[in-house]
Measured scan of single mutants.
Amino acid sequence: MISLIAALAVDRVIGMENAMPWNLPADLAWFKRNTLNKPVIMGRHTWESIGRPLPGRKNIILSSQPGTDDRVTWVKSVDEAIAACGDVPEIMVIGGGRVYEQFLPKAQKLYLTHIDAEVEGDTHFPDYEPDDWESVFSEFHDADAQNSHSYCFEILERR
């Protein structure tokens, strides 16, 4: 099963200049909980913004210009990325925008964090048809001392 995991502000903004323009430790914990011990696929820009392999996960970098870091697996196509994951129950696609666009048609599940923030962004989550998805989990949280904005975790499964 292919799943996408993303944090989205208003207007589906997911990033600005290779960074997330908010401070939500709870979302980072949600991300870790849902990706640990699963292969993660990301684009080169996302890889560069993280700066290191995510521990406890097979890191697969999709790029037309593969790098030389041998701590991760470099691939040039969506099919190659899927094959590099091996026989696993769930593959997690973690961004960025172009990689989400490439995998959305193949995805069966979306793990979304909806952030109540209007922020400037240069990267967006692809538009998706809500009628194609069923919400199977939703959990709202107010902003607090650690988390700069209110947010809602949601899991959607393709109908």
Rank of each mutant, 00 (worst) to 15 (best):
S3Q: 02
L4C: 02
L4A: 02
I5M: 00
I5C: 01
I5P: 02
A7P: 01
A9V: 08
A9T: 15
V10T: 03
V13T: 11
I14T: 04
M16N: 02
E17Q: 02
E17G: 13
A19V: 03
P21H: 02
N23F: 05
N23M: 13
L24T: 12
A29K: 05
W30P: 07
F31M: 05
R33T: 15
N37M: 14
N37C: 05
K38I: 06
K38F: 07
I41N: 02
G43W: 03
R44I: 04
W47S: 05
W47P: 02
S49C: 08
I50V: 14
I50R: 01
G51K: 12
R52T: 14
R52D: 11
P53W: 14
P53G: 13
G56D: 10
K58N: 11
K58P: 12
N59P: 12
I60L: 14
I60S: 01
I60K: 00
I60R: 01
I61P: 01
I61T: 02
L62M: 13
S63W: 04
S64Y: 11
G67R: 06
G67F: 07
T68D: 15
T68W: 12
D70W: 10
T73I: 13
K76C: 12
S77M: 11
S77R: 14
V78A: 15
V78W: 13
I82H: 03
I82V: 09
A83M: 11
A84F: 11
G86N: 09
G86K: 07
V88R: 09
V88N: 08
P89D: 06
E90W: 02
M92Q: 04
G97D: 04
R98A: 11
R98E: 03
V99I: 13
V99M: 08
P105S: 07
P105I: 08
K106V: 11
Q108W: 06
Q108M: 09
K109A: 07
K109S: 01
H114Y: 10
H114T: 10
I115S: 04
D116L: 14
E118T: 13
V119L: 10
V119Q: 12
G121K: 00
T123D: 00
H124M: 07
F125P: 01
P126N: 05
D127H: 15
Y128R: 08
Y128L: 05
D131V: 04
E134A: 09
V136P: 04
F137D: 05
F140D: 11
H141W: 06
H141T: 05
H141G: 07
H141K: 05
D142S: 09
A145G: 08
Q146A: 08
Q146R: 05
Q146G: 08
N147G: 03
S148N: 01
S150E: 06
S150W: 08
C152T: 14
E154I: 11
R158V: 05
